[in-house]
Each structure stands twice: as structure tokens, then as C-alpha cells.
Amino acid sequence: MSTENDSEGETTRITRKGQVTIPKELRDEFGLEEGDELLWQKAEDGIRVRKATHSAGRGMLVDDDISEEKREEMAEEMEATIREKRRTAWTPE
């Protein structure tokens, strides 16, 4: 990976596979972690990249009077259950 700083920020190169590395400073600042989804949008001046929200579907199956803390707790439990099911569903041959 090659990076260089310019007056507007840090640059990285696109790999042969079309991959890019997000600078650590930006990953830390915006809370980006492995597995997070990014949204790539066309903009008049180029490309805009932002973290895709995972809250878009939240609330559809939960009553409005449930606190944000409880919603987060429920989401974390659901994610843990999904990870466990994926882990146990895969069995090497």
C-alpha cells in the first residue's frame, strides 16, 4: 500500500483487484471496523464514501417505546446469534 499526504487529506492507491485501504486515522475517527459496509455515491465533484447505516431497518419489528439502549442490546444479541449460526453451520469436509 502506498500512501501520501496532500493538502486535502491522505491518498491511497487502488489495487489490481480494485481494493483500497482506508487510512487508520479515518477508520478510528469514524468507527470503521472489519465487516462494516461502505456506501459509494456519485457526486458532482467525484465520489463520496460513507459508512452505511445499519439502523435503516431497525424499528420495523420493535415497538416505538423501546429505548435506544435496549434496541442496541437486541441488535447485538441478534448479531451474536447470526455469527454463531454461521460458525456452526460451516463444517469442513
Rank of each mutant, 00 (worst) to 15 (best):
G57C: 04
G46M: 03
T12Y: 03
D64A: 15
K42Y: 03
Q19D: 03
R27L: 12
E44M: 05
T81H: 10
E76G: 13
G35S: 03
R86W: 01
K24A: 14
F30C: 14
E79P: 00
T15D: 15
L38R: 04
M60L: 15
W40T: 00
L61F: 05
A43I: 01
L61H: 04
K85L: 12
K70M: 12
K17P: 00
G57T: 02
D28P: 01
D63S: 14
L39F: 05
E68L: 08
H54D: 08
S2A: 12
I47H: 03
D63C: 10
E37W: 13
R16T: 08
A89G: 05
T53R: 09
I82F: 11
S55P: 00
D65M: 05
M78S: 10
R27G: 09
T21M: 06
E68V: 12
E72G: 15
R87T: 02
T81Q: 09
S67D: 04
D6W: 00
L39R: 07
K42G: 10
E69G: 11
L32R: 02
D45Y: 00
D36S: 13
D63M: 11
T53C: 06
E34W: 11
M74P: 00
A52F: 08
R83L: 13
A89W: 00
W90I: 10
T11N: 15
E10S: 11
L26K: 04
T15E: 08
G35A: 04
R71K: 15
R13L: 07
E76D: 07
E44R: 04
E25I: 14
L39W: 04
S7V: 06
K17D: 04
D6E: 02
E33Q: 15
G9M: 06
K70H: 07
E8S: 14
N5Y: 05
E4Y: 12
W90A: 13
E33L: 15
E68M: 08
G18V: 01
R27T: 12
R83P: 00
T91K: 11
N5T: 09
M1I: 05
I66E: 05
G59H: 11
G57K: 08
G57L: 08
S2Q: 05
T15K: 14
L32I: 09
Q41G: 04
G31H: 02
D45M: 07
K70A: 12
R13F: 01
E44K: 07
E37I: 12
T91R: 14
D45L: 15
K85T: 05
D28K: 07
D65Y: 01
T88G: 06
E29P: 07
E73A: 14
S7L: 14
E79K: 12
E73F: 12
A75H: 14
T53G: 06
R71Q: 09
T3S: 13
Q19I: 02
K70V: 06
M78G: 11
E84Y: 11
A43T: 00
E76I: 14
G35Q: 01
